[in-house]
Each structure stands twice: as structure tokens, then as C-alpha cells.
Design a protein around this nucleic acid. Structure first.
Length: 415
RNA sequence: GCGAUUGUAGCUCAGUUGGUUAGAGCACCGGUUUGUGGUACCGGAUGCCGGGGGUUCGAGUCCCCUCAAUCGCCCCA
């Protein structure tokens, strides 16, 4: 046991796992690009108020989960706990209101000081997509369809369901807020302690409570859907119709609310039961008030983020292909002399080439086998004297002698 | 932040009511084969028993503290 451990909630991603990690990220990027999203990278730290002001002063993320520190110039900075606030800030900083609508994809590490569990680290990675500047439901439909498409491409179509709800516009949300607080206040002596705390701060989160006593009270609580005003109701109806048109299956989840303050109208979560308590795998919603709240022009937005680690855990063992290199194996003095330039030439041709550095023929073949090599090129003095190399097919074990100048062509089948 | 479980070799784990030099499988290294891998056989190395303190003649085993992982709550991706 080494005394040198990584900081709690962080971990190393070794090459083996990185293949899956990359697969998830690259798939997200690839599918997003197909929907016309360009990739953006924002800094992993920002001025603290970028997050504090936008996520909601009372949200758990802001009040107890941020990595906040002062730099040497006494700036108060925070490691980003999520991606949307940074994208919104970048939108304002770069005057991107001239280029609306914007469709942006991002990926990268996020930081939250939470109690670690499986699928919940303090440094974790997200991929996300945002559409800025479209206040009609078409954006919601496209963003959700993108999420569903991405998860499907990962091979997770059957393990995941989409939960959908509408928080309504500001007016609807405020109206509901009031009716809910009124209703819940009658049960003040029966609510759980957690929920009591949330009654003032963020009463809608009480709908999510897993406490049994709370659930009984919630069962008869007024529904968010009933407080939606006409335009919000139509918006939601159009969203559902649009998803149906695209064959995106969903379930209405009347108690689904999101933790961050900036959401309105559409809220959705793709969830799974295969990851235990950390079942949310991709989630998002509409945030029409966010950019204005940050000091930018009124600009609507909708987007989602997905947890890369959670998705990487779910994808099938063999979903992400491992590289299959070609091994170059020198044998004897002449082989050692020529091997580096032969390997180099093949790499320039685009082949993945492993050069094992040490060991005799046997050891190098063992290494080649472990690396899942397709073919081995054996460079012995005998064949080099004839300006040729032996190519061993690592699956069949068959060997043929190939003149050096035809080597690259011959290997085409192993590419 | 709260509650519970766990922590022995690189990995997965065994280790009787506390009792000498702590074990297995896989992986690793070497050999059977000094120019031929994947199978087989033979051999080898490996541990601050998570860390610290305590009880005891004696602790991997019991007690306390601590760190970490896992599960649930909370929160969320």
C-alpha cells in the first residue's frame, strides 16, 4: 500500500479506462457536431460570482460544494462546478449576441466538494450542449433529441428513460411557488427536517424528497402542471408533440425539478437504475433568465450536461475499440540498426506501430500478443541480407517474407 | 454534513475461540524452447495485514482515533 494517495474524490484515469472515457466524450462531440454544435472550451476557474450569482445563492452547490480560493492577486476564484455558467459568461465577454443563435458543445473537468461515492467524484467530467438565443420550443426538442441520440449511440438506449417536466415561465413558477408554500405550511409539524429547511430556501425541491412522511404529504400537493399559465401550457404541449414526432420516448414526471435556480419551462433528466443512487446520467433544462441575470442582454438558452464517468461505467466492455498496433521486432545486430527507421516509416504511413525497446524475440512476441497486435514484423539478419522482413500474422501465426519496399503496401490489410 | 459496511501481495480474496517464519488464484519474472507469442508443465519474487495509539506474555484477529473506498441520506452529472 502506497502512502501516496490521490486527494479524496479524485482519481487517475489510466490508459485502459481512458479509452472508454474518450469514447464517451468523442461520441458526444461527434453527434453534437452532426446537429451543428461547435465546440467551446472555457476556463476551469472563474471569478466566484460567475457561479454564486447564477446558480442561486441558496443552492447546495454554491453554499457548500464549491472549491473557492483566493489567488495571489486576491481575486476570489472558484473551480467550475458545472459548465453552463462559464458558457454564459463567455457569451457575454465575447459579445456573442451578434452571432445568435449559438449552438455550443463543451467537455471537461468539473469540481464539487461532495462526499464521494461510485459515480460521484470531486473532480469529474462532463460533456454538455447549449443552444443560446432561441426562445421557441424547437430548440428544446433539438437539444433533447441530441441527448437521446447520443445515449443511443453509446448503446444505452435500453438502460435509460427520459423524465420530463415543465417548470413554466416566471409567472407560472412564482404562482406555483406560492400555492405550494401555502399547502406545505399547513404540514409544518409533519415535514422532515430537511424539507422544513427547504421550505423557505427552495420549496420545489421538497417534491423530490424520499422521506416517507414527506411523500404522503406530497402525494396530495398541488401539481406544478396545474399552475402553468396558457402560454407555458402550450409550450409544454408543443414540446411533447415535437418529441413524439421524432420518436423520442419520455415520461412525464410532475415532481421533477432541477437543483439550480436558473431553470424555467423545460426540465428533463435521462436516468438509469443501473448506477444506484447516482442514477441521473444526462440532465438539463431551459434557462431564459440566466444571461440577463449575469448582466448580459436578455437571451434565452437551453442545454444539458452529462457525466462522463457515469456513462463510461455503463457502456459495454467492448464498446470502445482498443488500438491494434503492428509490432516491429528486431533480431540481431542488423535488425537493431534498421528497426527504428522501418518503424518510423510505417508510422509516417499512418500505421500504429509498437516498438518494444527490449527483450529477445520471445519476449517481444509476448509483448506483441499482450498489446493485441495484428501483425509482427520480424527483422532478422537473414532476411535483411535479402532486403526483406518477415511478417507474422498474429492471429493465424502464418509468416511470409516481404521485400522492405513493399512492406507498407503489404500491411494494408492490418491497418 | 449524517448513518452503515469494508480496508490482508499489482488485482480478487482466504486467514478458525488472539499463539511461532501470513496463504490461494490471477497477474508478474525466469525456465522447458540461446530466431517465434497465445495453450501446457516446472520454478521464483512479492506484503509497514490502510495509518496511529491502546489492551495483552503475545494483535492481521480485541478496543479507540484517523484516513480511504463502498452503500444509503443529502445533493447532483
Amino acid at each position: 500500500m502506497s502512502a501516496l494517495k490521490p486527494v479524496r474524490g479524485t482519481h487517475d484515469i489510466l490508459p485502459e479506462e481512458m479509452i472508454r472515457h474518450r469514447f464517451v466524450q468523442d461520441k458526444a462531440q461527434e453527434i453534437s457536431a452532426r446537429y451543428g454544435f461547435g465546440e467551446i472550451a472555457t476556463p476551469i476557474f472563474e471569478f466566484t460570482n460567475v457561479f454564486a450569482r447564477t446558480l442561486g445563492e441558496t443552492s447546495d452547490i454554491v453554499t457548500k460544494e464549491m472549491y473557492t480560493f483566493e489567488d495571489r492577486s486576491e481575486n476570489l476564484l472558484t473551480l467550475r462546478p458545472e459548465g453552463t455558467a462559464g458558457v454564459a459568461r463567455a457569451f457575454i465577454s465575447n459579445g456573442l449576441s451578434q452571432s445568435l443563435p449559438l449552438k455550443l458543445f463543451y467537455r471537461g473537468p468539473m469540481f464539487r466538494y461532495e462526499r464521494p461515492q461510485k459515480g460521484r467524484q470531486r473532480q469529474f467530467h462532463q460533456v454538455g450542449a447549449e443552444i443560446l438565443g432561441i426562445d421557441t420550443v424547437q430548440a428544446d426538442i433539438e437539444v433533447i433529441a441530441l441527448g437521446a441520440h447520443f445515449l443511443e449511440e453509446l448503446g444505452l438506449g435500453n438502460d435509460i428513460k427520459l423524465e420530463l417536466n415543465s417548470l413554466g415561465d416566471r409567472e407560472s413558477r412564482d404562482a406555483y411557488h406560492n400555492t405550494l408554500v401555502e399547502y406545505l405550511s399547513a404540514y409544518k409539524d409533519k415535514l422532515s427536517e430537511d424539507s422544513l429547511n427547504r421550505l423557505d430556501r427552495n420549496p420545489m425541491r421538497i417534491l423530490d424528497s424520499k422521506d416517507e412522511g414527506d411523500r404522503e404529504i406530497i402525494a396530495n400537493a398541488p401539481l406544478l402542471g396545474d399552475s402553468l399559465n396558457e402560454s407555458s401550457r402550450i409550450f409544454f404541449e408543443e414540446l411533447k408533440a415535437g418529441l413524439e414526432q421524432l420518436g423520442v420516448a419520455y415520461e412525464i414526471s410532475p415532481c421533477l425539478v432541477r437543483g439550480l435556480d436558473y431553470y424555467c419551462h423545460t426540465a428533463f433528466e435521462f436516468t438509469t437504475t443501473t448506477l444506484g443512487a447516482q442514477g441521473t446520467v444526462l440532465a438539463g433544462g431551459r434557462y431564459d433568465g440566466l444571461i440577463k441575470q449575469m448582466g448580459g442582454p436578455q437571451t434565452s438558452g437551453i442545454g444539458w450536461a452529462a457525466g462522463v464517468e457515469r456513462l463510461a461505467m455503463m457502456i459495454a466492455e467492448d464498446a470502445a475499440e482498443k488500438p491494434q498496433p503492428i509490432s516491429v521486432i528486431p533480431q540481431g545486430d542488423e535488425g537493431k540498426k534498421q528497426a527504428p527507421s522501418i518503424a518510423h516509416a510505417l508510422r509516417k504511413e499512418g500505421y500504429i506501430v509498437d516498438y518494444g525497446f527490449t527483450g529477445n524475440l520471445k519476449k517481444r512476441l509476448q509483448r506483441a500478443n499482450k498489446l493485441n497486435t495484428k501483425a509482427a514484423i520480424i527483422l532478422g539478419d537473414d532476411e535483411l541480407a535479402r532486403n526483406a522482413a518477415t511478417v507474422r500474422d498474429m492471429v493465424s501465426g502464418e509468416q511470409v517474407e516481404i521485400p522492405l519496399e513493399k512492406l507498407a503496401d503489404h500491411l494494408a490489410v492490418y491497418r
